[in-house]
Simulated assay, not measured.
Amino acid sequence: MLKFFSIILRNKKAAAGMLIVLAYIGIALAAPLITSHDPLKRVTRPHQEPTMEHVMGSTRMGRDVYTQFVWGTRTSLIVGFAAGLIVTVIGTLIGVTAGYFGGWIDETLNFITNIALVIPQLPLLLVLAAFIGQSDPFMIALIIGLTSWAWGARVTRAQTLTLRKRDFIEASEQIGEPSWRIICVELMPNLLSIIGFNFIGSVVYTIITEATLEFLGLGDPLAVSWGTMLYNAQTSSAITVGAWWEVFAPCMAIVVIGIGLSLLNFGIDEVSNPRLRTLGAINKAVKAQKKFDQSYKSAKGAAS
């Protein structure tokens, strides 16, 4: 595990993305220590501009925006990682099972996956959230997790079908190893990059989707998250009255965490993909050669 992290940190994109994500996780974990107010408590006058005491201003209800941002970080990250875990577990189980066993199992699971892929996700989420009513963030995470696994299952199945014909898998079958051991010991380690890509992409999708549903009023208005911050800013006409800070804080929070997770995703893909690793090495060699040629020409010109 430590070797994996050391390899990841050598990639600039992955290192930058991990730094951003760890900063958000630190904010979420330290929420009680770095805030001094209750996120739902009125602590100042309505729509107060940012000051030294309230660095991100206040809402129409006089609530501290900074406090809501910090506690909203905890809620949004928990929802994102929970839904991402559900999506990854379901997608991996279905994809590996279908790709490895084949036959009627593959046909049945592939049929279910195709149905899930055909159904538009966002309209389905809107219908389910509206049917349930004002859902708390964890119910939204469960809904997203149970409806967004199909793409990951399709990608995992395709990679499993490729690995299924490899010599080391066939050799394991020839010596009589049980299927569960082949899947867990031989297949899964070779699917880690796909699984990681699926998990991080699902977290990004969940955070944005949760904020969208709550912004549309389908979440619990008493929950503190980035989505409810945007919803409350909309209902209070924050932009109209010039209280831009109410919208700026949650929007920037979503944008920055999205950038961090995307950079981490791209970095992991570059590290785990041999073609991208080779391309990166070639680019570095070309740049080094250009620098050498320039320095050589400069030295030759100075000598003449």
Rank of each mutant, 00 (worst) to 15 (best):
L40W: 09
L128T: 08
Q48K: 15
A299I: 07
R277V: 12
L22R: 14
H54F: 15
R164Y: 07
I115N: 10
I78R: 05
V203N: 04
M56A: 12
S172V: 00
K3P: 04
Q234I: 09
M252G: 05
S225M: 06
L261S: 01
F69N: 14
L126V: 10
A153F: 12
N283F: 15
W226R: 00
L109S: 02
V155C: 01
L163V: 00
S237L: 14
K3I: 00
I115F: 04
T88N: 03
I8V: 04
K13Y: 00
P50Y: 01
D38L: 01
G145S: 08
G80F: 11
D167R: 06
Y205M: 06
S179T: 12
K297S: 03
T35E: 02
T59C: 10
H37R: 13
V55E: 12
G176F: 00
R164E: 08
S295W: 07
V79D: 08
I207D: 08
L2V: 01
R166Y: 10
A141P: 12
I208K: 03
R45L: 15
P274T: 13
L163E: 06
G280D: 12
G227P: 03
L191C: 09
G217P: 09
R181W: 05
G103V: 05
I86V: 13
F81H: 08
V241Y: 10
S172R: 06
R181M: 08
I90Q: 00
S193T: 13
T235A: 04
A249L: 11
I132E: 13
S172C: 06
L85G: 10
G99M: 05
A238G: 03
L264Y: 11
Q159H: 11
G217M: 03
S272I: 09
V286K: 13
A243N: 02
I119L: 15
I169M: 03
A158T: 12
S298P: 04
A150C: 14
A30F: 00
A153K: 02
G99R: 01
K3S: 07
A233Q: 07
S148K: 05
D269W: 06
N11A: 01
R154L: 01
M18I: 02
L117F: 15
E246L: 13
V271K: 10
F215S: 07
L279H: 10
I7G: 06
P189Y: 07
T35V: 02
T162D: 12
H47R: 13
I183Y: 05
I254C: 05
I27G: 02
T278C: 11
I7P: 07
S135R: 06
L122K: 02
R60T: 01
T59Y: 11
L128E: 12
F5W: 11
F111V: 02
I86C: 00
V286Q: 09
Q48S: 08
G196L: 10
C184L: 15
G152E: 07
L33C: 09
Q289K: 15
F292C: 05
G62M: 11
I195K: 15
L263A: 01
F168E: 14
L142M: 12
T92K: 03
